[in-house]
Amino acid sequence: MQKILLDAREMEHPEPLQISLTHLRTMKNNEYLYMINLRKPIPLLEIVKEKEFFYIAHQDSKEIWHILITKNATYNLEELLDV
């Protein structure tokens, strides 16, 4: 399992979306994207759903969003959460 970390907390809109889409297009079966963001990235999640990726969106106690996305249905994304 290879983690692609994207800390988007200090990125201006729409840089996080552009970078994450680039990663998703080339994502291998043994990879997952771990995105940390100040907001829930709704447009990205729309695309993720449409392209039938698997994802979770979790907001921690400091109101930071952790978004985990993969192609691989066997990954338990909740176990990969780092909060």
Binding site: K40, I42, L45, E46, K49, I56, A57, H58
Partner: peptide, 13 residues
């Protein structure tokens, strides 16, 4: 708090 929410793309203008 886990969310599977969001809008579908067909709904965006």
């Amino acid at each position: 708090m886990f969310s599977q929410g969001g809008l579908s793309l067909e709904q965006a203008p």
